[in-house]
Design a protein around this nucleic acid. Structure first.
Lengths: 346, 346
DNA sequence: GGGACCGTTTGGAACGTTCTAAACGTGGAG
DNA sequence: CTCCACGTTTAGAACGTTCCAAACGGTCCC
């Protein structure tokens, strides 16, 4: 029965359980944590006592003594729908390997380092960073402290101390450009994401693809970020110019939505006047208002590979860094079409 | 320098710091936690030693001994943009009161109870539940264990053991209906959210408003949830019927977007053919593709009230339950318009 | 009959911190 | 010169768990 006087009852400890079961604290401990050894009889006695008392182990004491928490920390941008997809997939993947997950948000007012601090302070054994903007040096430093998996970008090459799981971003942008060129586009602009996670890779993929199609001269990158706001800003830059490109490849879906948004307000029709391609295939892209042609990343697979990588380091003692890459796939929806053929007035 | 052989170096402890500073562990502890007492000289000596060693207190040991973690746990639905708004506001609010925040997601595969378990297991001192679907009984039980603040719904009335911070949902729905009636609508349908957080209250607000306008007979509720999927399903139910209503008030923005989506595919124009109103004024609603007329909730204010309520219980020892309510505000955008006046063929 | 061995159980130390109460050194009052 | 008060420092217990090595009670074998 809940006590009504506001005084919280003392939590039962392992000593209480052991006393009630008539065994030693050590034996009770073995039973509780399912260690081999205890006889069937002790096991049932202890479990029953624990149940009757409503015993729950004190995690602080457990961690203090055992140095294990089986906790993985995850940083995310809470407004990013693709991060949401990843997080939803991380939970079952972690559970399958016996890990719990702790989340912490990176926000405009809360830098990644703060978020990481909160996770390590909460005794996480491993870190999974979504959309990390940490420098290679910082990652190396972190990786020396605990297992770190970076999702969605590389770790700066060379002897990295952290694992990475990512889509081959460059290939993804290549497919996007191929698709547009196939439709007949030539003036294809890339709205990039500056120093955001994986942006450099996507930029490179864009440049390479343009070159491959002999469109070096038409290649153009407008600075942006992985946000709707930045996409809108970039689109407004283009709208202020005398002529629009015929197609835009945005750094990710959110950025693409920002571009769409600005065009819509300006009366520019998509895809009739301009084609737009995103990146991620987040749930946002699938909304039928938006119906965005985009480069798909396999969130479920990325999540389970990331958790697996962390677990390998923690449980199997792996120490060499892994860089796991997945192939992206283009999903053609309604925001891309052949460019308008300008007809001369007769 | 990072060690390259994979062996993690032993973390320095308070003993190491004390030894290096040439003082006792107790004194070092006082300095580290900024307690009054230590002389200026000891303070600088200890801090310098701590700095040189890169000392960081072990949170598990701190909690074990002091029984305080200054940690607030927050549950959220990771795909809900309004929850994202709330979370972004919770961080600075908590920081202002000296608390850290831990997040955990409720997903289709991970029930709220699991999420709450993870938070209490992570030594959170207080809980803030976003979109909680816990029963009043369960909340009472939880509230007897630690301070709990429920955001966005009531706690089941009577002697609740938890605090609540919420918008007066009924009033919000009232404003939505008033607005539509003002435009000339009469056949106004509510797509509700079943047993989701706050849905009952919104349902009641809808019914009351319809009655107030003498539209009892036209009142109709189509079952839904707080998701795009549910909104789409509800819209398809309506589309299968001989005649559409002229306006729809959805349970929240996500649900409204689902409705818009289904209408768009079916060739129903919004707002020309049907008006749609959402709830929350999440960032989703503000996207110009969507441009949703909606009921605004003040996320920043709700967040800071929630954190404040938890802190009051933890720091000031308040034990009586609070039910804090905020007034909503209607934001008129592009998805509402007067209903079409059917012209008879001449 | 005495070890050796096995499965099971146990006491006590240890983890890194905070808490409590007492000890310390110094200076001023009696 | 002693005593007390005060500001500062300290030793040691405590928090609740896990780890370690040793103890226990049988059974089996020589």
């Amino acid at each position: 029965m809940p006590n009504s006087d506001g005084a919280r009852p003392r939590r039962p400890t392992l000593n209480d359980v052991a006393a009630r079961a008539g065994v030693s604290r050590a034996l009770a401990s073995l039973v509780i944590r399912r260690a081999p050894g205890p006889s069937e009889e002790s096991r049932t006695r202890v479990l029953q006592a624990a149940d009757e008392l409503g015993y729950r182990p004190d995690p602080s004491a457990q961690v203090l003594r055992s140095h294990r928490s089986r906790l993985l920390g995850v940083t995310l941008t809470v407004h990013d729908t693709f991060h949401a997809d990843l997080v939803e997939a991380i939970y079952p993947a972690a559970a399958a390997l016996g890990y719990e997950v702790l989340l912490t948000a990176v926000t405009p007012t809360r830098a990644e380092d703060e978020a990481i601090d909160a996770l390590t302070a909460s005794r996480c054994e491993g870190l999974i960073l979504l959309g990390s903007v940490a420098t290679p040096a910082r990652l190396r430093e972190l990786g020396a402290t605990l297992p770190v998996v970076v999702l969605g970008r590389g770790a700066g090459g060379g002897k990295a101390a952290v694992d990475t799981v990512r889509t081959v971003d460059a290939a993804g942008l290549g497919r996007a450009v191929d698709h547009l060129v196939g439709l007949g586009h030539r003036r294809i602009v890339h709205v990039d994401a500056g120093r955001d996670a994986g942006a450099a890779e996507r930029r490179r993929g864009y440049r390479d693809a343009m070159r491959r199609h002999g469109l070096d001269d038409l290649a153009r990158i407008v600075p942006g970020r992985y946000t709707e706001q930045a996409g809108g800003d970039a689109a407004r830059v283009l709208l202020d110019e005398p002529a629009l490109p015929t197609a835009i490849v945005a750094a990710n879906d959110r950025c693409a939505v920002g571009v769409l948004d600005a065009f819509l307000r300006a009366g520019v029709r998509v895809p009739q006047d301009v084609s737009v391609v995103g990146f991620d295939d987040s749930q946002l892209a699938r909304l039928h208002h938006i119906d965005l042609t985009t480069v798909r990343q396999d969130a479920a697979r990325m999540a389970s590979l990331a958790v697996g990588a962390a677990a390998e380091r923690l449980d199997d003692g792996r120490t060499d860094a892994r860089d796991i890459t997945l192939d992206p796939e283009l999903v053609v929806r309604g925001t891309t079409a052949p460019p308008v053929t300008r007809r001369r007035a007769t």
